[in-house]
C-alpha cells in the first residue's frame, strides 16, 4: 500500500534554481586592459573586484587574498562578463558591478565618479558635493583609494582641488598614463594649476567651467578668461556650467 501523504511530501522538494551555484562560487578572468592585463572577480550580480596584474602581482596571490578577505570561493570563469572587454578598451558603458559589500556612502561616491566623462577630471571636493556630503572630501579620497573596480569606475579622473593630479591606488604613474590615453592635456592643466587658475570662462556665453569640461575646451583664446574661484567668476558676471557644475 502506498502512502499518498509521504508521496506528496516528497513532491515538496524541488531542484535548486540554476543560479544557486553562481551565487555562491565567483569566477575570475584575466583580460587585457589599458595598463596591461587585469584580473577581475565576477559574482552573479556583477564584477566584484578588478586589479591590474602589474599592481596585484601573481594571480595565485591575488586569488588567495580575495578568498581570505571576502570569504568566498573563486574559480576560473568560462568567459568575461558582458561589457568588460569594451569597457577596458574605452568603447562601452561597462559590465554590471556588484558593490553590495560597500557602505552606502562609498557606493554613492563611486556612482558619482562613474559619471565623469572620459577625458575630463573633477576635484575630490566636487565628488563629495555631488555625493551629497560636501565636507567629506578626505573620505572621498579614502573611498577612491580602495575602489574595488578601478578602470570600470574611473577614479583616475578625480584630482586635487589645487589642480595637482593627486594619488592613485596603483601609483601616480598609472593615473598619468590613463589620463594621457584619454587625451587630457596634463601640461596645460599643470600650467593652469601653477598660475592659480581653477576655472575657465567664455566672455561670449558668460559661462564658467572646470578646465577639462568639453565646453571649456571649445573656447577660443581671445574669449577665454581664467578665474581662481567660482566666487570671483560670479562677481565678474559669469554663471557656472550646467554640465560640469564647478
Amino acid at each position: 500500500m502506498t502512502d499518498s501523504l509521504l508521496e506528496d511530501l516528497r513532491d515538496l522538494a524541488g531542484p535548486a534554481p540554476a543560479t544557486l551555484a553562481e551565487r555562491v562560487v565567483d569566477g575570475w578572468v584575466q583580460v587585457p586592459g589599458p595598463l596591461g592585463d587585469v584580473y577581475a572577480v565576477v559574482g552573479a550580480r556583477g564584477v566584484r573586484l578588478l586589479r591590474t596584474a602589474a599592481y596585484a602581482g601573481e594571480l595565485g596571490t591575488f586569488l588567495e587574498d580575495y578568498r581570505t578577505r571576502h570569504g568566498r570561493p573563486v574559480r576560473p570563469a568560462a568567459r568575461p562578463p558582458r561589457g568588460l572587454l569594451p569597457a577596458l578598451r574605452g568603447t562601452g558603458p561597462g559590465p554590471a558591478l556588484d558593490l553590495d559589500a560597500l557602505t552606502p556612502f562609498a557606493r554613492e561616491v563611486l556612482a558619482v565618479t562613474a559619471r565623469i566623462p572620459s577625458g575630463q577630471t573633477r576635484p575630490y571636493g566636487w565628488v563629495a558635493r555631488e555625493a551629497g556630503h560636501p565636507k567629506a572630501v578626505r573620505a572621498v579620497g579614502s573611498v577612491l583609494a580602495r575602489n574595488p573596480v578601478p578602470l570600470l569606475v574611473p577614479c583616475h579622473r578625480v584630482v586635487r582641488g589645487d589642480g595637482d593630479l593627486g594619488q592613485y591606488l596603483s601609483g601616480r604613474a598609472d593615473k598619468v598614463a590613463l589620463l594621457e590615453r584619454e587625451g587630457v592635456e596634463l601640461d596645460r592643466l599643470a600650467d593652469l594649476a601653477a598660475s592659480g587658475t581653477r576655472l575657465i570662462g567664455s566672455d561670449t556665453t558668460g559661462v564658467v567651467c572646470l578646465p577639462t569640461c568639453h565646453h571649456a575646451r571649445r573656447i577660443t583664446t581671445a574669449h577665454r578668461h581664467g578665474f581662481a574661484s567660482l566666487d570671483r567668476a560670479r562677481a565678474a558676471g559669469y554663471r557656472p556650467c550646467r554640465d560640469c557644475r564647478p
Binding site: 515538496l12 522538494a13 531542484p15 551555484a21 570561493p73
Partner: peptide, 14 residues
C-alpha cells in the same frame, strides 16, 4: 566546493 554545491545544492535549497 563547487562540486559540493552542485551535488548538495538541491537538498540544501529544498
Amino acid at each position: 566546493f563547487e562540486a559540493v554545491v552542485r551535488t548538495h545544492g538541491d537538498v540544501v535549497h529544498a
